[in-house]
């Protein structure tokens, strides 16, 4: 296999990078970990005229807690960096766990959270948990920075709101919040290196046994990661029980439109949404951020 020819740039600053991308036009692409775009290029699904490497933008690798803002993850943080980060584990172990379930160890050492989001495949493992926790993303372009909630970031398979001319994803913020538990359950057909057949993330705010607030995000069952709001409504304000969560699971099935492919039929995926919504809710309710 080979990569089609392209020009290569490694700018030293974010400003330089965005300027370069504007100058080179939309056929140039930013290069983060490369674990997605290089595969696409080898498979003939992408042939950028230039790759603008972000490797020198070390400030975008940072992971930190900012009081008042929350958990800030630089877009170039690798999956293993997120998995191993004490700050992440301390505040949202569920994000660390989700990062650990992604691809395999070698890919996690290269692949970045920003790349994972911008690549926008419907089965991606990080979006469900980040959306469930209300994350927002910041992009910097020639016209400055803008921030959008992650739930409105994705527009379709491999499509997101990022502007092709010069915009670069810079950070992901998971706000300070009163959620008491969150989790991501991935169902893949192998225990490593598998895409999710179904992924379900939940975040709940409990008041004793009463579910005050819940967010349920489903992955791999629609063209974008999708919030199962109707399912959350079924349980909010109620005392949790297995029967109630089963009800939420069944309602969540109405919030997805999975396809049938080599990883599973739509019927199977729907039933898995029911099962894993129930299980993910119970886990977040009873075990906290895991």
């Amino acid at each position: 296999m080979y990569l089609p020819d392209f020009d290569y740039y490694a700018p030293e600053s974010l400003a330089e990078a965005t300027a370069l991308l504007v100058e080179l036009g939309p056929a140039a692409k930013p290069l983060a970990g490369g674990t997605d775009i290089l595969v696409k290029m080898k498979n003939g699904l992408a042939s950028p005229s230039a790759l603008v490497s972000l490797k020198n933008l070390t400030e975008l690798r940072d992971i930190r807690w900012e009081p008042g803002r929350g958990l800030v993850i630089g877009a170039l943080a690798t999956h293993n960096q997120i998995r191993d980060s004490e700050v992440v584990q301390q505040h949202f172990l569920s994000i660390s766990q989700a990062a650990h379930q992604l691809a395999n160890n070698q890919i996690r050492n290269r692949g970045t959270i920003g790349g994972n989001l911008v690549n926008a495949i419907p089965s991606a493992d990080l979006p469900p948990i980040l959306i469930a926790l209300g994350a927002s993303v910041t992009m910097v372009g020639p016209d400055g920075a803008r921030t959008v909630p992650l739930e409105s970031f994705f527009t379709g398979p491999s499509c997101c709101v990022i502007e092709p001319e010069g915009e670069i994803l810079t950070e992901i913020v998971i706000p300070e919040q009163d959620t008491t538990g969150s989790t991501y359950i991935k169902f893949g057909l192998r225990k490593s290196g598998a895409l999710a057949v179904v992924g379900v993330a939940t975040a709940v705010t409990m008041d004793g046994d009463v579910i005050r607030k819940a967010r349920i995000c489903l992955g791999a069952v629609y063209k974008v990661p999708v919030l199962a709001e109707e399912a959350a409504k079924v349980i909010e304000g109620k005392t949790w029980s297995d029967e109630l969560l089963e009800q939420a699971g069944r309602t969540a099935v109405g919030c997805c439109l999975p396809i049938s492919d080599i990883r599973g039929s739509d019927e199977y995926r729907r039933d898995l949404v029911r099962v894993f919504t129930r299980r993910a809710l119970k886990r977040a309710i009873t075990q906290g951020h895991v």
Partner: peptide
């Protein structure tokens, strides 16, 4: 550990 097939030499 990384996959050398998914890293540009320039990187």
């Amino acid at each position: 550990p990384v996959d050398a097939c998914l890293v540009l030499a320039l990187e």
